[in-house]
Amino acid sequence: MGRVALVTGGSRGIGEAISKALKDDGYEVAATYAGNDEKAAAFTKATGIKTYKWDVSDYEACKAGIAEVEEELGPVEVLVNNAGITRDAMFHRMTPEQWREVIDTNLTGMFNMTHNVWGGMRDRKFGRVINISSVNGQKGQAGQANYSAAKAGDIGFTRALAQEGARAGITVNAICPGYIATEMVKAIDEKVLNERIIPQIPVGRLGEPEEIARTVVFLASDDAGFFSGSTLSPNGAQFFS
């Protein structure tokens, strides 16, 4: 049996591609989801990857969920923190609830998940933590003060934790995707997509979820053992940092 990989938000979008790619590479994969039971069931039926339902913003739910995964599959050796939400609004209209929901899921959720596997990784002297941030955490984006702040926080979290994990055999890296052809992005008005978004991307197209997934597979591998604290930016040359 291969190493156990846990992917949050792993049944849809980029997370779905990551889960599939890790399974294809020999990992025993568990995928979490927050609310769409129908999609999760269809994903499991199509892929054979078991899904687990919990809210990553809830620490105790993460603790219980990870315990269930480890009881069924074995210790989590690869954690992909992919779960995320948006609650977009211009800042003068943004509510405290919109701010809190995004920070709680996209940043605190990363703490909740990682904190509950970190001790085991330290004990085993091996671990891979891969955090999915965003180009908008690097450059900011109007209407996304909450999302950009959380995703920038993900990068800081990655860099600090990489230093703590280094001597314990744990690598921690971040991936900052640009605009990727997921259901959410493709649902944007075609005129906006073609006239305002794609022209910002020098390669002239959206990224594919599988391109992010292949990056995750590399960072999870033994070959990536000297990569830690890194930020990889698959964004079609939209932004350099």
Score class of each variant (00 low, 15 high):
residue 27 Y to K: 15
residue 207 G to P: 01
residue 179 Y to R: 05
residue 203 V to W: 11
residue 66 I to D: 04
residue 232 L to I: 14
residue 55 D to K: 09
residue 50 K to P: 06
residue 138 Q to G: 06
residue 166 A to D: 03
residue 173 N to G: 09
residue 22 L to T: 10
residue 32 T to S: 15
residue 137 G to W: 14
residue 38 E to Y: 09
residue 17 A to L: 14
residue 165 G to E: 08
residue 207 G to E: 13
residue 59 Y to N: 03
residue 70 E to S: 01
residue 69 V to K: 06
residue 91 F to P: 01
residue 192 V to M: 12
residue 193 L to V: 01
residue 29 V to S: 11
residue 10 G to S: 08
residue 17 A to E: 08
residue 81 N to D: 09
residue 74 G to F: 02
residue 130 I to W: 07
residue 54 W to A: 02
residue 218 F to K: 14
residue 156 G to H: 08
residue 30 A to P: 09
residue 72 E to C: 02
residue 11 S to C: 13
residue 6 L to Q: 07
residue 4 V to R: 01
residue 235 N to F: 03
residue 233 S to F: 00
residue 39 K to Y: 11
residue 6 L to A: 13
residue 149 A to P: 03
residue 57 S to Y: 05
residue 89 A to S: 15
residue 124 R to Y: 01
residue 69 V to N: 09
residue 76 V to S: 09
residue 160 A to P: 04
residue 156 G to M: 04
residue 91 F to D: 15
residue 127 G to A: 00
residue 111 F to L: 11
residue 144 Q to D: 13
residue 19 S to H: 08
residue 146 N to Y: 06
residue 113 M to L: 14
residue 63 K to F: 06
residue 207 G to I: 09
residue 178 G to K: 01
residue 105 T to L: 02
residue 142 A to M: 08
residue 170 I to Q: 10
residue 213 A to C: 05
residue 25 D to K: 15
residue 107 L to Q: 02
residue 44 T to I: 06
residue 77 E to I: 06
residue 213 A to M: 06
residue 148 S to Y: 10
residue 3 R to C: 00
residue 215 T to F: 03
residue 156 G to C: 14
residue 43 F to C: 01
residue 95 T to P: 09
residue 163 Q to A: 11
residue 219 L to Q: 07
residue 8 T to S: 14
residue 188 I to E: 02
residue 169 G to Q: 15
residue 145 A to P: 02
residue 117 V to R: 12
residue 25 D to H: 13
residue 221 S to F: 07
residue 107 L to G: 11
residue 81 N to L: 12
residue 96 P to G: 04
residue 142 A to T: 14
residue 215 T to R: 05
residue 105 T to C: 05
residue 13 G to E: 07
residue 51 T to G: 10
residue 130 I to P: 12
residue 35 G to P: 11
residue 110 M to H: 14
residue 130 I to C: 11
residue 1 M to H: 15
residue 238 Q to W: 14
residue 69 V to H: 02
residue 204 G to R: 10
residue 63 K to D: 04
residue 92 H to D: 09
